[in-house]
Amino acid sequence: MNTLTKSEAPISSTQQPRPVLEVVEVTIRYGEKPAINKVSLSIPQHRITAIIGPSGCGKSTLLRAFNRMNDFIPNVKMEGQILYMGSDIYVREVDPVEVRRRIGMVFQKPNPFPKSIFQNVAWGPSINGFTRNLEARVEQSLRRAALWEEVNDRLHESALALSGGQQQRLCIARALAMEPDVILMDEPCSALDPVSTARIEDLMFELKERYTIVIVTHNMQQAARVSNLTAFLENGSLVEFGETDQVFTRPRNKRTEEYVTGRFG
């Protein structure tokens, strides 16, 4: 497992982008039982990194550790370090609120606030003190989330009137409005139909120009389609981490091969 990052082939011809998030020997426990066991990996900038693995393998737990969303779950204990731009986000001086401003998140089920479309996008910036040019910021975010054309004539109508796929793109726009560096996506398409899923996948391609994306998915085709790098987790341990092409076509580990070819999971 130590050989994983070392033997990675370079991504395209350019040099390896610098890591935005580094996970160092992280163990996360719910009570006694470890959900994540000594995982180390680094997430490069402006790439899409997919975390795959069978249900209950700890994918979401790991993802939620990146923006300290596990803080809200009682009895969660973490060992090891998670570095964001080189600094540990779990030391006492770091305010988790600050972390979440820079590392946005999109959830499994679309969860817009029961308010207007505009308010959904504008709320994040406004509570964080970005109140100037709010309209422009909302428009820009909705454009980047490929939703503007569909909703620009009804910005002040309820977000709950949108379709599931539109709601999820609204949630992406809401995260983008904070101008984060990283966007974490926790199975963002699992509640959507194939057409909406394709739209979100297209969107992810565009977004990686500006943002670093980490996506948890149980859908292996999705990981193969959208991601540059893939991490395969099983029972809380990192089995394999490398370029997506390599992980899917020439997996080094037997378990990875069995999983990506659909023999279990």
């Binding site: 923006n67 969303m69 809200f72 609120v97 600050e98 979440r100 401003r101 946005g104 998140m105 959830f107 089920k109 969860n111 817009p112 606030f113 029961p114 709320w123 994040g124 509570i127 964080n128 949630c171 809401r174 995260a175 904070m178």
Partner: peptide, 27 residues
Amino acid sequence: VPDSIRQAAFALGATRWQAVRAQVLPV
């Protein structure tokens, strides 16, 4: 009030009070 609303608020960098006042309480 569904927990997903709190989670959404926290993920946007809201403090607990901001999440409660603006999102949870109205619901």
